[in-house]
Structure formats: structure tokens, C-alpha cells
């Protein structure tokens, strides 16, 4: 599934990474717990309700570069700036974590575990 399709399915807003929307996404991981994100060996798309600079830093360290913020959390300008340095994609949806995960799972995005 392409990022563009994901954005459409989630009725989402793209905050960063317009130029990467044709990239394919195969796996996702959903968590508000950055401790948990830091234990991942793979680099899935992250679905999270945690919207602060630490989310971006954690992704930087864990080499994740696509983040979906759920439930109306909007990335702040300092988050976008930091994410820009790392060439990340940031998108935000008003849908809940549950709905977001359900829709994407249904559309064929794979879990890690």
C-alpha cells in the first residue's frame, strides 16, 4: 500500500514528506511507548498518539521514518523541523488508534509480531 493510499484511507493530513507519498508501506507498529519503539529491530511505519519532540528523536534513533499521529494530535513546528533533518514523513489523522490500526490491517498492512 502506498503512503498516498494510506493518507486517503485515514482522511489524513500530510505535515511532512509530500515527495515520498508514492513509497510503499508493508509493515506497521502501533505504540505510545517510546521504550517499546526503541526495542524494534525492524523499521515499520509508526502509529502513535504520543506527539512530542521525543517521538521524533526516538524515531531518529530507531531509524523509523514514517509516523502517523492519531486522534487529532498535530506535530508542532519544532517537531517538523527536527523531522525534516531526518527526511521523515509525518501524517496526522483524526481517527482513533483503534480505527486507524483496524483500517490499515484490513487493507493488508502487516504487523511485526
Amino acid at each position: 500500500m502506498t503512503l498516498r493510499e494510506i493518507v486517503e484511507k485515514l482522511n489524513a493530513t500530510v505535515y511532512l514528506g509530500q515527495s515520498r507519498l508514492d513509497e510503499d508501506v508493508t509493515t506497521a507498529f502501533a505504540s505510545d511507548l517510546m521504550s517499546d519503539v526503541l526495542t524494534l529491530k525492524d523499521t515499520p511505519m509508526l502509529i502513535t498518539g504520543l506527539c512530542n519532540v521525543q517521538t521524533i528523536r526516538t524515531c531518529d534513533m530507531a531509524t523509523l521514518d514514517i509516523v502517523v499521529f492519531v486522534r487529532n494530535k498535530k506535530p508542532t513546528p519544532d517537531m517538523v523541523e527536527l523531522a525534516e533533518d531526518n527526511d521523515m514523513v509525518l501524517i496526522a489523522t483524526s481517527y482513533s488508534m483503534f480505527k486507524t490500526c483496524g483500517l490499515l490491517f484490513d487493507a493488508g498492512i502487516q504487523p511485526l509480531y
Binding site: 526503541l38 512530542n52 521525543q54
Partner: peptide, 15 residues
Amino acid sequence: DMGFGAGMGLPNMQK
């Protein structure tokens, strides 16, 4: 609130 505090940091460093 910052997304930390699961008691996974030190074990993760070890790994």
C-alpha cells in the same frame, strides 16, 4: 507522559 518509564531501558542497553 513523555513515552518512557516501562522499565525497558537498561535491559535494552544490555541487548
